[in-house]
Design a protein around this nucleic acid. Structure first.
Lengths: 238, 238
DNA sequence: AGTCAATGGTCTGGTTCTGGGCCATTGCCG
DNA sequence: CGGCAATGGCCCAGAACCAGACCATTGACT
């Protein structure tokens, strides 16, 4: 086995606050939390929520602005607006990215599977409030009417929503984290019509099981759904 | 639901590197990774692994030394040695601690359940190497022959071992994290003989299922095992 | 047109953390 | 006994980061 303190003595802080912040914001956009043209929270609030000083946040925003990912407007009703669109999927890129990840891919896939199936099960187990059911349904409907451009973004958003309705903050954070680690790969997968159809069917099954309180069903549906992309990504590794 | 970016815009860095480091080391000890008299890794190596400068680590060690948790010896074959023993369980203390945690308790329990049942399932699913089987058996045997003093420490170590043999670094880190959050509570639960017997039975069932590759059984056994302490802790909340 | 609140822009002093070099101590080993 | 290697002890210059104050701009509302 590993040496002493394997998982415990991992890094206390992840590199550099500024770079980490850039990544976070970029991931938020890539995960579909913010679409093209959406406004990020005000600097003061965002800095507070990220636990960094406003200066550091501004440095990150400056860098994102320079990269053309956001646009900043002053004055009341101003703010920081997203001007980023996902790059088109590219299988060559995907192959390269998968190779780069190496052994980390298997780790990330396992982590995702455990967290997302667990989240689905917990969501089904606990009785959801009216509001939560509505939230889930809205996310599903949003996804089903999505054009190809928005599909991947709204797919992330849908999966995140399941974790959120469990009410477990840690679980939602974990799912978001695991999604972030796989996101570039998932986004590089071309969105084909028959894939969408297949996915949609599974998404509906997941939501139905969760809303019906079908614990085992929710887990199984989620597992099946995740197996698809997992197999695809693993395929690029062989 | 939450506002925009719920789980994404959580704090980038957890407070202060020095305090965080103190906690980490203390948790490593409380989790049973290091027993009384064990030597921590050398400062230079530990600083590297924790991702902090040696000075910051030393500050943390100084503080632990002042608190009497470790003892430092210079020279070759010197190092930092653990001189900490778990305080005796105390139900009054437990009640207070549970109240202090509030809603966070439910979150932590859910997180733990998802991760540990998931880890057990993954461990059962993947074929374990001879070495991994041995590792798991050693941890179990170690736990079963433990005196009451060592029981809680070795129990943590056993549960951590299951996550480790999944081979998923993230999963192991997650389990360690969730254990850390509940650790003070778990340690405050008195260790009664009949509880030990009950737990041991469940531990054996978990290991047997994992070694036999019984995926569903491993999950179920783990779930049952965790349900006990969860119910107990929830009881103190009502 | 004027007001005002919300927002980004800028500055400054202070704290924490880093990275690296160098010294001091200790006990094994030839 | 003397060398040596591993370890902790110490110090410093500079970078990163923070907390807070204050300024500048903008557009809706009256």
């Amino acid at each position: 086995m590993d040496w002493q303190g394997g998982a415990i003595f991992r890094p206390v802080r992840t590199g550099n606050a500024f770079e980490e912040t850039v990544q976070r914001i970029l991931e938020a956009v890539k995960l579909g939390v913010f679409g093209y043209g959406d406004r990020l929270p005000p600097e003061r609030e965002l800095a507070l929520r990220l636990g960094i000083s406003r200066e550091t946040l501004r440095e990150a925003l400056r860098s994102l602005q320079a990269a053309g990912c956001v646009q900043v407007r002053r004055g009341r009703y101003g703010g920081t607006f997203v001007t980023y669109r996902l790059p088109p999927p590219d299988l060559g890129e995907l192959r390269r990215a998968v190779r780069d990840m190496g052994a980390e891919l298997e780790d990330a896939l396992t982590y995702r599977l455990v967290l997302e199936t667990g989240a689905a099960e917990q969501a089904a187990r606990r009785g959801l409030t009216e509001q939560q059911c509505g939230y889930l349904r809205v996310r599903l409907a949003e996804l089903e009417t999505a054009g190809p451009d928005d599909y991947r973004r709204l797919d992330s958003r849908f999966h995140l929503a399941i974790a959120e309705v469990t009410g477990s903050h840690s679980l939602a954070a974990g799912v978001a984290e695991s999604r972030m680690r796989l996101n570039d790969l998932l986004n590089a997968i071309p969105v084909l019509d028959r894939n969408i159809e297949h996915s949609s069917h599974q998404h509906r099954a997941m939501v139905e099981a969760i809303l019906a309180g079908d614990v085992a069903g929710a887990r199984r549906a989620t597992e099946e759904h995740l197996a698809g992309t997992a197999a695809l990504l693993r395929g690029f590794l062989g």
